[in-house]
Amino acid sequence: METITKPTYMKRKKDGSISLKSGSKSERVMRWTIILFILLTIVGFLFFDYTGLHLTTAITETAYNLKVMFLEPALNHFSWGEALYQIGITLGLAVLSTVLGAVIALFLSLMAATNLSKEWISKIVRIIVAFIRAVPTVLWVLIFAIAAGLGSEAAVLGMLFHSIAYLVKAFSEAFEEVDKGILEALRATGSNWWHVVMHGVLPSTFTYLLSWTFLRFEINFSVAVAMGAAAGAGGIGFELFMASGFYFDLSEVGFITYAILLIAIILEVLSTRLKKRYFPASVRH
């Protein structure tokens, strides 16, 4: 066996065997994160409220329910036309909150991008956005519903908030990645801020902004379904809520679920295409 002339670089573990890990901070943090996950999960299961749970009956019943839903879907309480109309409402809520959100987010993200804005403005916008994001959408909708009355206005306003927060983050990151050279070149010609934005920043990020907006539309569709169900904002989500909670009609629940699934998958396929085209690397959160 060949011998090592200078074993100075070898690290040894406590038991004297040769170590393979560098013992870096990232390794330690990762290990602790995983341990923490496991502990919290165990504690979580202890914390659960198990009132009224009969696991075996629940599972068999659910299996039966799923069978009825997915194998015998039917419409009983409303017509096909009505169903399409309700889907239209849900899509409409998603469109409105996405489009309005994108327009507002565009301005806010120009203020939030560190290379286009003053630092303190950018900080303030970011803090506000972080706050908005932390409040669940459904709470926004419900809160607006008290103030503005329950209607599409409340739903759109509530959904708008999160869309703005999401898009500001995405847009401002896109703006910050704009090549410094482009901005400098434009500034050097004496262009004012608007010129820089209109001729330098927006053209080079436009496709990004569009794909992010579409991604948000995909999310907003399922948010709109949820708002219909949980906040009574109407649309197919509300019908789902009625079918399951009011009529106990599993076939109808099945039909509605299929409809939602179909649209969601179409949107996902479209947005994956966009993603592949415009984000060569992976998509950040």
């Binding site: 198990y50 629940a58 399922s222 379904v225």
Partner: peptide, 24 residues
């Protein structure tokens, strides 16, 4: 694809029918 494209609310409503009102 199926489990992520059916919204969480739909799952919640479906499961609520047989699991009842609890954390599970």
């Amino acid at each position: 694809a199926v489990s992520r494209n059916i919204p969480v609310v739909a799952w919640a409503l479906i499961l609520l029918l047989s699991f009842g009102q609890n954390s599970v």
